[in-house]
Simulated scan of single mutants.
Amino acid sequence: MASPLFTFPPETVKSLRDLRFKSARASTPQARIYEISKTDMSVKTQDNELYTSLEDIVDALPGNTPRYIVVSYPMITSDGRQKTPFVMVYYLPVTATQQAKMMYASAVEIVRAKADVNRLIEIAEEEELLEIEAILNE
């Protein structure tokens, strides 16, 4: 049997699980950035940091390399209820190399399934992440 192309080390699986369960009742956004290692095709956290501000995430994103951002985003609905959507943002900058675009595109559904997110949002510019609440309300 052939081995899968993309792997998820135990620490990545744990970080995804922790983010999902520990952020459900948080009052601020909770997010982690994930990348694919070119050496062994494993999906890992970019820097193992838990981000609590969209601005900090924007600052941490590379300008020319795709990334996956898994976000738990608390918000108040128009009828006053609190909800915390768990989403994956697929950051695909236009300046990324064709090879990087292909590698990340081939893994997006695998990462989405492993993260068990409610929704996938694709962005091309870092600043689009700051508009996540408007996107989630669509």
Rank of each mutant, 00 (worst) to 15 (best):
V94L: 15
D47H: 09
R112S: 13
A100D: 15
L129H: 01
I57W: 01
S78I: 11
S106Q: 13
E122V: 11
D79P: 07
T84H: 05
M88W: 03
M88I: 06
I69F: 02
L50A: 03
V58G: 07
E55H: 11
A115L: 03
G80L: 07
Y91A: 04
P85T: 01
D59W: 06
M103N: 14
Q99V: 14
I110S: 09
Y104F: 12
I76R: 14
T77A: 09
Y90F: 09
A96V: 08
S78K: 11
M102V: 15
P66K: 00
Y91S: 06
Y51F: 15
V94W: 14
Q46H: 12
Y90G: 00
Y91C: 04
E128A: 03
V108H: 13
P85V: 04
L61A: 01
I121A: 03
R67K: 11
V111W: 05
A96N: 07
T97L: 15
R81W: 06
E55R: 11
M102C: 12
T84A: 12
Y73V: 08
L50D: 05
V111H: 08
A96S: 12
A60H: 05
I69P: 01
A96I: 10
A96L: 10
P85S: 07
S106C: 12
I76L: 14
R67T: 08
V70F: 01
V89N: 00
Q99D: 13
E55G: 08
P74V: 03
E55A: 11
A96T: 09
T52L: 13
A100I: 11
E126V: 03
Q46S: 14
A113V: 11
E126W: 07
A113N: 14
T65P: 04
E127W: 06
V117Y: 01
I69T: 02
I123S: 00
D56G: 06
Q82D: 07
A100H: 15
E125Q: 13
S78P: 07
P93C: 05
T97K: 15
V89Y: 00
